[in-house]
Design a protein around this nucleic acid. Sequence first.
DNA 1: CTGGCTTTGTGAATGTGTGCACGAGTGCCT
DNA 2: AGGCACTCGTGCACACATTCACAAAGCCAG
Lengths: 230, 230
Amino acid sequence: MAPDRNRRRIPDATVSRLPVYLRILSEQAEAGVDNISSEGLAELAGVNAAKVRKDLSYLGSYGTRGVGYEVAYLVYQIRRELGLTHDWPVVIVGAGNLGQALAGYGGFGERGFPVAGIVDIDDTKVGTVLGGTRVRHIDELPQIVLTRRVNIGVIATPGGAAQDAADRLVKAGVTSILNFAPVVLSVPRAIEVRKVDLAVELQILSYHEQRRAGGAIHAVQSGTGRSATA
Amino acid sequence: MAPDRNRRRIPDATVSRLPVYLRILSEQAEAGVDNISSEGLAELAGVNAAKVRKDLSYLGSYGTRGVGYEVAYLVYQIRRELGLTHDWPVVIVGAGNLGQALAGYGGFGERGFPVAGIVDIDDTKVGTVLGGTRVRHIDELPQIVLTRRVNIGVIATPGGAAQDAADRLVKAGVTSILNFAPVVLSVPRAIEVRKVDLAVELQILSYHEQRRAGGAIHAVQSGTGRSATA
DNA sequence: CTGGCTTTGTGAATGTGTGCACGAGTGCCT
DNA sequence: AGGCACTCGTGCACACATTCACAAAGCCAG
């Protein structure tokens, strides 16, 4: 049972939108924009303005009526709420296709999640260098987690190895896991797990395509009239 | 034949779980399991048994009371509902880190989403071979989409190129997009877009980590009221 | 054929998320 | 100073999702 240190709990739906706002606001700040209205942010984020206001209201009342929100201050507040005021080193388990891509993807470190290490169980992969990081053996996981103070683990192994990877991560002291393997992980309740499954995403798209085909097969859209809002 | 078969609409939440059930059921079938109860499936999928039953009830009543569900038949029904009775070729835009990983990841084709083509705007990448597919120039996109009857596009470009990629995909006739770029795409309403954003996922984990740690830290922060500036 | 056991399918209750609508501040203009 | 235009913050109603709880349905043993 979790201790009820339930201070302002932010709804999950909101938490998952805050990073999007944050990215947009950072871009706006970069572009020299000082203030932004909920309407403007909503437009850029592809959501409803009321939703933006409600989301932001969970952080406190940082807007100014009649004016909008001060971009820089909002960036600061969201970063603080998301815990992005300091780096969160991550360890990647699995140096296969995906692990390599993740390690090579520079955007990780830039966004506050430096790769503290990559490990694999396959000796032939150990020692190779990916994105500036040397692949180490998975047995070194506990040491990496401990010395680099890693809280977040990324599982980029094949499905069959994912549960083992999760077990090792948990044992090593990691408390959050981002899982790319197409497997439902079984972990202690206190561990936060998020799943990214390509096959699932594609199958959801497939569902909609199939549904579309079921009705009338309309020809290609005439105008490229894009619109995010109604 | 009436194509108007107004299929019972399946809730989004259910649609996103069906692929998970499907994978588990396929594994079970492989392992020689003939029947499974909602309880058993729920266990393997990490969800509530009532939820499983309700989800499956949207497909029709294919269970047998007192016994459970026939695995093979359920696999068939879910596949049918998700439109997985035939392949959906996909085209990948962007042959960078991620595009390479996606192309190299065999699980794509195996699961019914063969890579019909990979395109990039960078001439130096055109011609290289990834996962058995030759990278072609993005100008060839319309031709690939047309000849290979592609409905699904995958955007694996840097953020800055994503909107252009989306525009080109839509123009070429693609109706579903899986977007890995950290950008909110603007597309015609009829286009189905799903987003996979690593940074967002990590930031959500960060939020929870910060919260976990925050129990103690949340000391006095009162004086930090917003600087009353303009 | 009956009674007991199991498990589905679903109504109803509860919880979570969304969006409208509007009061309440704020700044600008006259 | 007063009025006006603008935009936030939020109560409320509605929609969607989850979970409970139980009757109906099927199987099996005797």
